[in-house]
């Protein structure tokens, strides 16, 4: 498993793809942070994280599209599958490599918050007395980053699974974008209103189901700095289920 992990990590950085991902992600998150906080004169990071999640619709597939699709196309999967490694080892090695890069990029993007703290400190120094908190709320930021990482793990697992289904990287990417977009945008349905301000989806059960399935709705507790154990389980389950399905895809192909 470790050899595959190492190989995947290497492959991100000897191909342009790792750099493209990192570059795009860091630039985008920096710009986003700039616009949602500094330009908007706000210490709240809520909208920053919200928009960041939309960026993942495009960014995560970049990480995951080639994981299995490329191996299958180049027939190198035969090497892995006939080597003394378990299927789980192969899938985990690949998943962890993508996740590591993702984790690194998210942690790097935390540099974006430094200006907020600097501004906050400066403002606090300028005021004598204040009843409200000035500057960013560390608990919210930590909670949100944590949730973003979990969410990313789930998305990467989905991308990994889709990559294992096809041998065409491009179609893997497109399908992954579609699936992740659907998961993210689903929540917006609940917010839709018609001209009179009435909710379009008025049926409570449907709203409940959408809310339950949506990845975004789970996010909100973390973004208030609350540790939501249910959401944690939810994200981990998605990750686990899709990794398990990936293993099953390969297992089934052997028997097919």
């Amino acid at each position: 498993m470790f050899s595959i992990y190492k190989k995947e990590m290497r492959s991100y950085f000897i191909n342009p793809i790792g750099y493209v991902y990192l570059g795009v992600f860091l630039v985008f998150s920096a710009l986003l942070c700039c616009y949602t906080t500094v330009v908007a004169a706000s210490y709240s990071t809520t909208s920053y994280f919200r928009y960041l999640i939309f960026a993942f619709i495009i960014l995560i597939p970049i990480l995951t599209m080639r994981l299995f699709a490329e191996e299958r196309k180049l027939r190198t999967e035969q090497l892995l599958l006939t080597a003394p490694v378990t299927l789980t080892g192969i899938v985990m090695g690949k998943f962890l490599a993508a996740f590591t890069l993702y984790l690194g990029s998210v942690l790097l993007s935390c540099l974006n918050f430094i200006p907020l703290y600097v501004f906050g400190a400066a403002e606090r120094a300028g005021t004598q007395y204040s009843t409200t908190q000035i500057g960013p709320v560390t608990g919210q930021i930590v909670g949100s980053v944590f949730a973003v990482i979990l969410l990313g793990a789930a998305f990467i697992a989905i991308g990994t699974f889709i990559s294992a289904l096809t041998e065409n990287q491009l179609s893997a990417a497109v399908i992954t974008i579609g699936v992740i977009a659907a998961m993210v945008l689903l929540n917006l349905l609940n917010g839709l209103t018609d001209a009179d301000g009435q909710q379009i989806i008025s049926s409570y059960p449907i709203r409940f189901v959408i809310n339950w399935v949506s990845v975004l709705s789970r996010f909100s507790n973390f973004s208030y700095g609350i540790f939501d154990f249910g959401a944690l389980l939810y994200y981990l389950s998605i990750t686990f289920v899709f990794l398990f399905l990936t293993v099953r895809v390969y297992d089934k192909r052997r028997w097919g």
């Binding site: 050899s3 290497r10 180049l74």
Partner: peptide, 20 residues
């Protein structure tokens, strides 16, 4: 089953590790 973006050395070392 060759990884085209590796050198021969890297490739064989990868196999060496893969096979434990």
């Amino acid at each position: 089953p060759l990884y085209l973006d590796m050198t021969v050395k890297e490739y064989l070392e990868f196999n060496y590790e893969l096979k434990g």
